[in-house]
């Protein structure tokens, strides 16, 4: 069983710079053809400073220094046993290439189902830009198959 005393555990903050090349690579990987996500002029014409972050990319950016993987290591949960259960994003302010985003996660819940056959780890993450503005929030549920 996962140690429930980790509820309330707060990750050390991590800061990641948003790179244009990375955003273009991501657009290619998901087959995105809207020039808003690859062409800076198109992005600026739409009112963005530079290429905007696609809807799910805050999650990817946080993967650069993933508190969830570090947490799993600490909890001795193998990557071979996890599945992504749920993910949600709340958007407060646009993030564009050139921004630096600082993430901080808190373990908000750990619980089990089916007599412990499945365990769930819930993390809530805040994302702030270089000016300290809260740009987004994420909630992530990882399922552990025992």
């Amino acid at each position: 069983m996962i140690d429930k005393s980790f509820i309330g555990w707060v990750s050390p903050p991590s800061t990641v710079e948003v790179e244009k090349g990375r955003l273009r690579f991501f657009a290619k990987a998901i087959g995105e053809t809207n020039p808003l996500y690859t062409n800076e002029e198109a992005a600026q014409a739409a009112g963005y400073r530079s290429l905007p972050l696609p809807l799910t990319f805050l999650f990817c950016l946080e993967m650069e220094n993933p508190s969830s993987f570090k947490l799993l290591e600490t909890l001795k949960v193998s990557l071979a046993r996890i599945l992504h259960g749920e993910q949600s994003f709340t958007y407060h302010y646009p993030v564009c290439a050139g921004d630096c985003v600082t993430f901080q996660s808190t373990v908000s819940d750990i619980y089990s189902k089916k007599g412990g056959a499945l365990e769930f780890i819930v993390q809530e993450t805040t994302a702030r830009n270089q000016d300290g503005v809260l740009v987004g929030e994420m909630r992530n549920t990882i399922v552990v198959r025992n």
Partner: peptide, 14 residues
């Protein structure tokens, strides 16, 4: 994209 305030998903099956 600017109109979107929240976006969530549950991964129901592999």
């Amino acid at each position: 994209q600017k109109a979107i305030r929240q976006f969530s998903a549950r991964f129901v099956a592999i």
